[in-house]
Design a protein around this nucleic acid. Structure first.
Length: 574
RNA sequence: CGGGGAGUGGCGCAGCUUGGUAAGCGCGCCUGCUUUGGGAGCAGGAGGCCGCGGGUUCAAAUCCCGCCUCCCCGACCA
């Protein structure tokens, strides 16, 4: 279908929208791909819809290629199945709940494990039926506390979710591997720069899990990668190598220092002129287990923070809360900003990062206002009740696999695959009768791709100061023909557009009359079609100009050659 | 949910402190003429319950109260 700018439903903007912060958001709005409908909710205009369809098609084709079968569930779901698996409450406020006129509870689906499991249970019951992989491409909802970054993190978004059902772990591994291969094909096709990293399975439960991350400064995930080996992991999933325990060294005795007005590490660093890495940061938390709450102090080198997710994972099923001002008020023996492990009340236990090894000496709080202590030695002056791996990562930390230095990078999560196991099949008692007539519990895998997020993630990775630069697979057209000048040039351009299109090449033609060349060039660069063909002043000599949007390379060529050249570039001969 | 900021034609903004021809600018849109390889020029136009509700006042975009919405940072989180 030939897209003509003269009638295309499109208005480009010269200025960034006031509510946009990240490049993809600014550019997708300015180039007329999307419009905001509400916070975190977007409408797709024709160009955006085409790009979204292009992503959808690539995903669908590769899913079909591994034998997955497409289904479609409602987005509006009943409460009961989610009640049964506990997610009605576990998912918390992130679950978008509604009531109908009778007061019945419903939700707008965030993911559909429950529905897929129930559907398979309803249809299949024999080992002969398995394995099976089902998927859907559908609108999902999450009641994000704070939607941000435009399309990257909305409250409504399009997602492909698929689920594999297998009789045993070997089968699950096979389904997982199939998805992994399919995802590689999909993201290669879409022209992504991406990494596959080890991940935690998050709130879903389950074991083996990997994320596909598109490196971008605006990404919300941080991952580490090792230059020496192939190790790469989300920081949440990194297992720190335990450092060698130092033999108790010859440290001077503890010395108490006057450090007026230094309740923060920053102030202390300033005051003492020593690096934060020499100091011990002690974070107070309330740990509740079995209805009993106790105070726990967690020590980490002060150039790091405590990762609360990791801490909660370590202490689970106990719940962890940060110590608030009123908690300090209730415990005058714990001095905010001046806590030290050697000066703790007896009822407080001390957890520490492995780097706080036996024999290491630290600057830390002295347990009194405006006083710190130095030469506080682990094992000599205080004991660590338990070592826990809960400190945040820093660049240069050793790779857990080979010991090489790790680097940290931000990335956008565009896909996640993991082996769910039997959490949901247990909840719904999904069994398959074996050849012996006895039931066996089915095991599941769960695999997601953020379809609408991909459009934004590509925009984050591929743009310049002029606008978008789409990979061909996603671009709303293969070639953007710009007719500058007078009406006869528009006629020539339209004629050319039709001949190119007859070769199976998708064409966007700027046939607007009375629009100056500068405006058309600017729009073409903003819209980001990978190939730009200019029918303009060279026409008098029978020449048109071919430009590559990405590299900016320009080339004049005879009008008669244009059809073949463009067709060749696109690599999609009819 | 905590902290900060903002709601004025389709978009981006000024005006508010010091109530009273301040409803104003840029982009976009419409008409005519000129222009056509880098965001055109001239002339003439259309378009705004100034977020909503209440209050103060002779008079409110402007002052006061309440509410709603949106953005940023944090918390949270596929």
């Amino acid at each position: 279908m030939l897209l003509r700018m003269s009638s295309l439903f499109l208005r480009t903007l010269r200025e960034d929208p006031a509510d946009a912060e990240v490049p993809s958001h600014k550019l997708l709005v300015r180039a007329g791909y999307v419009r905001r409908a509400a916070a975190g909710i977007y409408s797709w205009l024709p160009l955006g819809k085409i790009a979204l369809e292009n992503v959808t098609r690539a995903v669908r084709e590769e899913m079909d290629a591994i034998g997955a079968q497409e289904v479609l569930f409602p987005a509006l779901l009943p409460r009961e199945p989610y009640e049964l698996t506990g997610r009605w409450t576990e998912y918390g406020d992130l679950l978008l709940r509604l009531k109908d006129r009778r007061g019945g509870d419903y939700l707008l689906g965030p993911t559909h494990e429950e529905m897929f499991t129930l559907m398979v249970k309803g249809e299949y019951s024999s080992y002969k039926d398995f394995p099976v992989i089902l998927y859907q491409i559908q609108t999902k909802y999450r009641d994000e506390a704070r939607p941000r970054s435009g399309i990257l993190r909305g409250r409504e978004f399009v997602m492909k979710d698929s689920y594999s059902f297998d009789l045993d772990d070997a089968g699950l591994q096979k389904s997982y591997d199939l998805h992994r291969e399919a995802y590689i094909k999909i993201f290669d096709r879409l022209g992504f720069d991406y990494r596959i990293v080890s991940a935690t399975s998050g709130a879903m439960g389950g074991s083996h899990s990997e994320e596909f991350l598109a490196p971008a400064p605006t990404g919300e995930d941080t991952f580490v990668s090792c230059a020496q080996c192939q190790y790469a992991a989300n920081v949440e999933a990194v297992q720190t190598r335990l450092p060698q325990v130092e033999a108790a060294g010859e440290h001077p005795p503890v010395e108490v220092l006057d450090t007026p007005d230094t309740p923060t590490i920053e102030a202390l660093v300033e005051f003492l002129g020593q690096p934060a890495s020499a100091m011990l940061k002690n974070l107070l938390v309330k740990v509740t287990e079995g209805g009993v709450t106790s105070v726990v102090v967690v020590g980490v080198p002060a150039d790091r923070d405590v990762d609360m997710d990791k801490l909660e994972a370590v202490l689970a099923p106990a719940t962890v809360e940060i110590f608030e001002a009123e908690d300090f008020a209730a415990r005058p023996d714990l001095v905010r900003g001046y806590v030290g492990p050697h000066a703790l009340p007896g009822d407080v236990s001390y957890l520490a990062d492995p780097r706080v090894a036996q024999g290491t000496a630290w600057v830390t709080g002295a347990g009194q206002v405006d006083k710190h202590a130095r030469n506080v030695v682990a094992g000599r002056d205080f004991t660590v009740d338990r070592y826990v791996d809960v400190a945040t990562m820093l660049p240069g930390d050793p790779c857990p696999r080979c010991g090489g230095p790790l680097s940290l990078q931000r990335g956008i999560e565009i896909g996640h695959i993991f082996q769910l196991g039997r959490k949901y099949t247990d909840a719904f008692q999904l069994d398959a009768l074996g050849p012996d007539g006895k039931p066996g519990r089915v095991t599941m895998g769960s695999y997601g791709i953020g379809v609408s997020r991909i459009v934004a993630a590509l925009a984050e990775q591929a743009h310049d100061d002029k606008g978008l630069i789409w990979p061909r697979e996603v671009a709303p057209a293969d070639v953007h023909i710009v007719a500058t000048g007078k009406d006869n040039q528009i006629q020539v351009a339209l004629d050319l557009a039709q001949r190119i299109e007859a070769r199976g090449v998708r064409v966007l033609c700027d046939d607007r009359a009375g629009v100056s060349p500068g405006v058309k060039f600017t729009d073409a660069e903003l819209i980001g079609v990978p190939t730009i063909l200019i029918v303009g002043k060279g026409l008098a000599q029978g020449v048109v100009e071919l430009r590559d949007r990405g590299s900016g390379q320009r080339e004049d060529l005879p009008l008669e050659e244009a059809v073949d050249r463009v067709t060749g570039l696109v690599g999609r001969p009819s």
